[in-house]
């Protein structure tokens, strides 16, 4: 009887240890994943912001440069 109780208690103890171990690992995995996801998302946001800013400046730059160039060429022709 005592041996049976000991066996059952030992099994329960081992089960608890296993659960705690896996729980710990899962929490560590989740934490690492959260950090990695956060990093990726931050990078994506940075890149997107850089892209959008570049696109915006590019449009403005293209517009200005193109129109300036156009008017400059005409002016040169006119003056000469």
């Amino acid at each position: 009887m005592l041996v049976s109780i000991l066996i059952v208690l030992s099994a329960m103890a081992l089960a608890l240890i296993a659960w705690l171990y896996f729980n710990n690992r899962n929490n560590a995995l989740k934490k690492a994943h959260r950090e990695l996801v956060g990093y990726y998302q931050e990078c994506i946001v940075l890149h997107r912001n850089a892209f959008a800013a570049r696109e915006k400046r590019l449009k403005r730059y293209s517009f200005i440069r193109y129109n300036l160039r156009e008017s400059l060429i005409d002016q040169i022709k006119a003056t000469v």
């Binding site: 994943h33 996801v37 990726y40 990078c43 994506i44 890149h47 997107r48 892209f51 570049r54 590019l58």
Partner: peptide, 22 residues
């Protein structure tokens, strides 16, 4: 987690590529 990370990695690679291309 791997699936999500891969999605984000792909998106990051895509946006990096776009950025470099641009």
């Amino acid at each position: 987690q791997l699936l999500k990370e891969n999605e984000l990695k792909t998106a990051l690679v895509h946006i990096e590529t776009q950025n470099r291309l641009q």
